[in-house]
Design a protein around this nucleic acid. Structure first.
Lengths: 141, 141
DNA sequence: CTCCTTATTGAAAATAATTCTCAATTGGAA
DNA sequence: TTCCAATTGAGAATTATTTTCAATAAGGAG
């Protein structure tokens, strides 16, 4: 319930569609596309417009309250930004995603690449794909 | 000129649009979107259709002759797959991209994440963003 | 070199995804 | 309450991608 504070403190209103988007994503464990979010909200009784869903996803993402996650097919979805971790590992079978730590280890790689390429590195996109414990134990993979 | 062999050996024809797509990408140092590729080819006298560009990008990517690269805004582009390296570092200013090695270092991170999350990791998406030597020396950044 | 088969193409329509417009609504400060 | 600006819904507009299908052309056989 911290995102409400973040929004109001920056002068944004707690409009109904805005709250519904966050509420909808809060108990999802897989990245959701704008369309899927809209449909899901509708099923829960919302009458928010698709345009409003897009608008709020953009805002919430810009404010760092949501994270963008690509599924194995390259489709962009959103998840709530829970921890300080920016990276996700995503199940190829059920698409369930969890954040992981370990940016420290990336920094070694980054320093090496900076030396190798003469670029200054200031950001990165990293996602891992694999199979989650549940799908493994159920024999799906 | 190795991609021609790869295509024919797998039973694909060396059609004019197909060759033009590869030729067009071969001397580009930034990832190009399908639309940009089509426009660029037109300027070089090609009359390939946009649909054909899409079709061939998909094929060439599937065969591993092209790599998919996301620019800092998340737009998908393509580059020729030059080495055995699958990752790119991309300049935020001029979008110039180069491949880098160092998957070895990722494997350490991957093992750690597997232990932490109980996922089996079987693939990953990694791109670095920053500023290239040229843009730095020209004072653009 | 010419013929034949079939992969591939161009053009246009169809579909899908995203953004924009604008009058109507509503959150929240006064 | 009242009021004003932020935000919305609805639908049009734009943009990106895929599909359809008759026409073309690549490349093997003769």
């Amino acid at each position: 319930m911290n995102w409400q504070k973040a929004l109001t403190e920056q002068g944004y209103r707690l409009s109904t569609p805005r709250k519904q988007v966050m509420a909808y994503l809060e108990n999802k464990e897989k990245p959701m596309t704008p369309l899927a979010i809209h449909q899901g909200m509708r099923q829960q009784g919302s009458n928010a417009s698709l345009a409003s869903v897009y608008r709020n996803l953009e805002l919430l993402y810009t404010l760092g309250l949501l994270r963008a996650v690509y599924d194995p097919e390259g489709n962009l979805g959103y998840m709530v930004a829970s921890g300080g971790h920016y990276h996700h590992i995503l199940c190829k079978f059920c698409h369930k995603a969890v954040e992981f730590s370990g940016s420290e280890d990336l920094s070694m790689l980054i320093r090496q690449v900076e030396k190798e390429t003469c670029y200054d590195v200031s950001g990165h996109l990293l996602q891992l794909y694999g199979y989650c414990p549940e799908c493994k134990s159920k024999g799906f993979v």
